[in-house]
Amino acid sequence: MKKRLNLICLGIVLAVLVSMSFLFSTFYYGFKAGIDAYEQGAAGVEKLDVTYKMIGTMPTDVITNETATAINEKDGSTVSILPFISMIGVPNEKADATDSIFLSLLDWMVMICCIYAIVQFVKMIRNIHRNIIFDWANVKRLRRLGFSLILSFCCSLVTFAINNHLVSQAISLKDCDFSIAFQFSDPTLLIGFTALLFAEIFAIGLKMKEENDLTI
């Protein structure tokens, strides 16, 4: 039974890490791009006068869409790409520094929430391995896990919404509308509400157990 529990817990951890891998990779490449730009500026290398922002889009014409293209290195042909989540360069003169600071704070909030959620999950699994299962401490950890994941999703959604608004003020994309709809495919929101559901199930079970103990 413990072996099956370990496999389930491992699967949950992997699912959470996979769902957050996109976040961590974009954070890493964004941080690396900032360092590279600083080093190039210090070395006197001319850099592009743009700020990259992550946006969500929804193609309006799937058949003849030419919003984005890439080169097929196998035969040198050009292939069309339907962008749903993209990094787009906005001229620096149209990028607001205040917005950038606020967006950076949101990114850090997402990172902190995700790490906090993982810590709560690990602590709960540690209790389960110690045969401490139906306990109020686990209920609290499940609630913290759920709320932190939901907050992480909300911060990420707000980031996309702000970026979409800022970019739409400076850029208009052919055959494409700015949209945050694709962001709802992120499983973080579902995992968060599932954790809250299990927290309430645990809480109901504990209350029933306490009532039964009092009647005996």
Rank of each mutant, 00 (worst) to 15 (best):
153 F>M: 02
149 L>D: 01
140 K>R: 14
123 K>M: 14
145 L>D: 04
43 A>R: 13
68 A>P: 00
80 S>V: 13
205 G>M: 13
97 A>N: 12
216 I>R: 12
10 L>H: 08
9 C>K: 08
129 H>R: 13
193 F>Y: 07
208 M>F: 08
118 I>F: 10
69 T>F: 09
64 T>D: 12
184 F>K: 09
83 P>G: 02
36 D>Q: 09
96 D>V: 08
142 L>H: 01
210 E>K: 10
169 Q>D: 12
176 C>M: 15
202 F>S: 01
44 G>C: 07
34 G>R: 00
164 N>P: 02
39 E>H: 13
177 D>W: 08
154 C>R: 01
155 C>I: 05
47 K>L: 10
92 N>Q: 15
31 F>V: 04
156 S>F: 00
212 N>K: 13
34 G>M: 04
98 T>H: 11
107 D>P: 01
154 C>Q: 08
157 L>P: 01
129 H>T: 09
130 R>C: 06
68 A>D: 11
32 K>P: 01
97 A>Y: 14
2 K>W: 08
203 A>Q: 10
91 P>L: 05
151 L>R: 03
202 F>C: 00
41 G>F: 05
57 T>N: 04
18 V>A: 14
29 Y>H: 04
170 A>L: 07
122 V>C: 13
19 S>Y: 02
18 V>D: 06
63 I>F: 09
21 S>W: 07
55 I>H: 04
57 T>L: 05
111 M>D: 06
33 A>H: 12
